[in-house]
Design a binder for these strands. Sequence first.
DNA 1: TCAGTCAAGTTCTATTTGGAACTCGAACCT
DNA 2: AGGTTCGAGTTCCAAATAGAACTTGACTGA
Lengths: 164, 164
Amino acid sequence: MLEAKLWDNPCPFTFRINYLALLYNTPLYGWISDEYGLKRPEYVVLYSLALADGGSARDVSRTSGFPKNTLSRAITQLEKLGLIKPRSKAPGGRRTQALYLSDKGWALIHETRPTFEAQEKRMLKALSEGERQMLFELMSKVVREAHSWADELPFEAINENEEG
Amino acid sequence: MLEAKLWDNPCPFTFRINYLALLYNTPLYGWISDEYGLKRPEYVVLYSLALADGGSARDVSRTSGFPKNTLSRAITQLEKLGLIKPRSKAPGGRRTQALYLSDKGWALIHETRPTFEAQEKRMLKALSEGERQMLFELMSKVVREAHSWADELPFEAINENEEG
DNA sequence: TCAGTCAAGTTCTATTTGGAACTCGAACCT
DNA sequence: AGGTTCGAGTTCCAAATAGAACTTGACTGA
């Protein structure tokens, strides 16, 4: 069945995307869970803040796909674990809370992120450096145009060819 | 935060993969759920069988990442809905059940799959035909080598550079 | 042929998830 | 300023999910 999904699939690109995401995420988040007792949404918040400290729950939701209530719970838990700074002393009132990693949170990121990086590197070992750059360019191009297709489904398009 | 995750991420490839998977899957499976009352694992089984009729629950699990009990439930439900053929008359005994779409199941696939295809096409509109082919090649290359990295995590590698 | 092993599928149950309604502070408008 | 709208975050709860134990058919080897 894997062969059919790879080579006989009307959606070869999105299948590859989903399949690679699966092979990448499953072991890594399983490891995070076993080793650090953090669920995926919790670690996602940490990872997100490590890239954009001071971001809000809404930012994480928008960029990760988790609904805001799931993240609300995750953030409460991270605060309880001392992995992010307490929110009470947030400067601008209460709405749109800026979240910051604590030292402990940073330590955890520095300890775990290399494994994520190494796994990504391993995934791309099949490619030469030039190929990796090309792949990065192409994926970036697709992502940059995401706004044009991500909002609604192509219902009107399904019965016509709009491009050759 | 999106900018940081795109351009400042130590895992730029897997972030793009996850992000695109998110933008692709969410609206499509939401539509399937609203319009046809099928949950994601249920539709995944149908889609899988449309590509490899006669496949087993285990095949679907391996290629989709859903655990086998989730698929067991999905398959029971699909059988109840008449979207796959009844399993009782499976030829080779009871273990490793070969699953087959019913006419109704095929009809549903023919009705819905074009939207998935159209959405993939829209995603890739940012690319020229040559770029699409290149992207396909590169992704295929990565997938083909998946066996070499998908099984275990790179714990030994995180403190050394194994390739420049 | 029969015992032993293995793995596909099922069931049970606790955990996790996410939709919906709600709260509440901030921005906006007149 | 007062009233209205907006949306970020929380809470509640039903639904979905996945781990673990179990069942059962098939393959193995003597």
